[in-house]
Design a protein around this nucleic acid. Structure first.
Length: 398
RNA sequence: GCGUCGGUGGCAGAGUGGUCAAUUGCAUCAGACUGUAAAUCUGACGGGCUUCGCCCUACGCUGGUUCAAAUCCAGCCCGGCGCA
């Protein structure tokens, strides 16, 4: 049987792990390296799929299993004809497994911790320990509890209890129907200690195996959806290597690299991982997507990237701009932009930069007009999508 | 003119003898945001300093009562409303 998701390398970059290629999916090709736009709830916040086609040109969008399962319900998405039909986007899609919510609603909940740490992070025993009992979880105000079999979530929407296992996550992703689905994993906190990282990683490996089995049992889905395994190991290079080796031996259509990183050794982590992962399968870097990070990721052999930063920053008034060759964030709410009638970014020729000024967007944000979020999202996504495209061209032309 | 209610920080609006440089909201200024709990969150917001604290000036104006006044009293100024 022909696999629904395959990868083809067009050119490798000498001296690095970088490569330009194509991921073939039932809904079309993804030319890599590529930035994957995040549309968690089946919508890229503030944008219509038509906007993406008209103004951004992204080739693929990523939705979230946990969110769509809770609302409107994955059975409903299936009844609608699947994610593509439901949201009116007929290009490639990916669903994330819900593994990130194990982190964001668990260890990270209420703590302001992100998966991308900067500098040293003090080990926090509770980042690992407290996920084991419901009592401790409640005591620490967390919305999920982990055990060997899976994760019990308390809905952030209405407080109801929900159970995710590897099998359940895959089943839900079958209902949603994205081209690429992801094995259920645990994204660990950068503050979890080494011992816990080992434990969580090994558990994620067991879930990976179960995810493959669950996927293989659904022949219909097997024809239409490719499955990625998730490399874990946190900020420890030895664990990263181990995780990559373990997953490489499993029958995945590609790999996602997840978990927490540190700003300082992202490159090293990716290098270790991608030297081990099979070359002929695509590698997605989960949740990382600042321009500098993507540049590193590409050089270290990653093919696709998703990140909420461009859209989240956009909604809160911050835009990307290339200032004297440096990737910079500009907070348009700052007083100095009130009368700045220049385009958002001199080097950008996106629809927004062609038609609007910083002062106008600053006004929209100050006035809390929703058009601000819309225009800034278009610009930020264009910025990052085009940046990634240029990295691809550099490899192809290099 | 008489009566009555009221005048608080950029605005709105709490507070009615000490715990008040004064609740809160807005506005303002700045910061954060990396598989979206997020059109969100955090901080500052009278002035100065040796800034987990200290010193000045402040609740219409002037004076008074009191150990102590944004808070009580008197006069004045200003505004709303009612009656002339």
């Amino acid at each position: 049987m022909k696999k629904p998701v395959t990868f083809e390398i067009l050119k490798s970059q000498p001296g690095t792990l970088g490569r330009a290629g194509v991921i073939h999916t039932p809904h079309g090709d993804i030319e890599t390296p590529a930035f994957v736009v995040v549309g968690t709830k089946g919508t890229v916040k503030s944008l219509k799929p038509e906007d993406m086609e008209a103004y951004i040109g992204n080739q693929v969008a990523l939705a979230n299993t946990y969110h769509l399962y809770l609302q409107p319900g994955s059975d409903l998405v299936q009844e609608a004809g699947g994610l593509h039909t439901f949201m009116n986007w007929d290009k490639p899609t990916i669903t994330d497994s819900g593994g990130f919510q194990v982190f964001s609603l668990g260890a990270a909940f209420g703590k302001g911790v992100t998966k991308f740490a900067q500098g040293d992070v003090a080990p926090d025993e509770k980042a690992g320990l407290n996920v084991y009992s419901k009592e401790l979880a409640q005591e620490h105000g967390k919305l999920c509890v982990i055990d060997e079999e899976g994760v019990t979530f308390t809905s952030h929407i209405d407080g109801s209890m929900h159970r995710f296992t590897a099998e359940r996550s895959i089943e839900i992703q079958h209902q949603i129907g994205a081209d690429i689905i992801i094995a259920f994993d645990e994204c660990t906190s950068p503050s979890a200690d080494y011992e816990y990282q080992v434990e969580a990683m090994e558990r994620t490996h067991r879930w990976a195996k179960r995810s493959i089995l669950a996927h293989k049992q659904n022949f219909e889905a097997l024809k239409k959806q490719g499955l990625l395994g998730v490399v874990q190991g946190g900020r420890h290079l030895d664990l990263r290597k181990k995780s990559a080796e373990t997953l490489a031996a499993m029958d995945f259509d590609g790999f996602a690299i997840g978990g927490s990183f540190s700003k300082e050794d992202l490159g090293d982590s990716l290098k270790v991982v991608n030297e081990v992962l099979p070359e002929d399968k695509p590698r997605h870097l989960l949740g990382i997507g600042e321009p500098q990070d993507i540049m590193q990721g590409v050089a270290m052999g990653c093919d696709t990237f998703d990140c909420v930063a461009p859209t989240r920053l956009a909604r809160t008034g911050t835009i990307y701009a290339n200032v004297n060759g440096t990737h910079t964030r500009l907070n348009l709410m700052n007083a100095k932009y009130q009368r700045d009638f220049s385009k958002l970014d001199e080097s950008c020729d996106c629809y927004v930069c062609q038609n609007y000024t910083k002062a106008y967007l600053a006004h929209l944000f100050k006035a809390r007009e929703m058009l601000g979020a819309h225009l800034a999202s278009i610009h930020n996504l264009c910025y990052i999508v085009n940046f990634t495209k240029r990295l691809r061209e550099e490899i192809l032309n290099g």
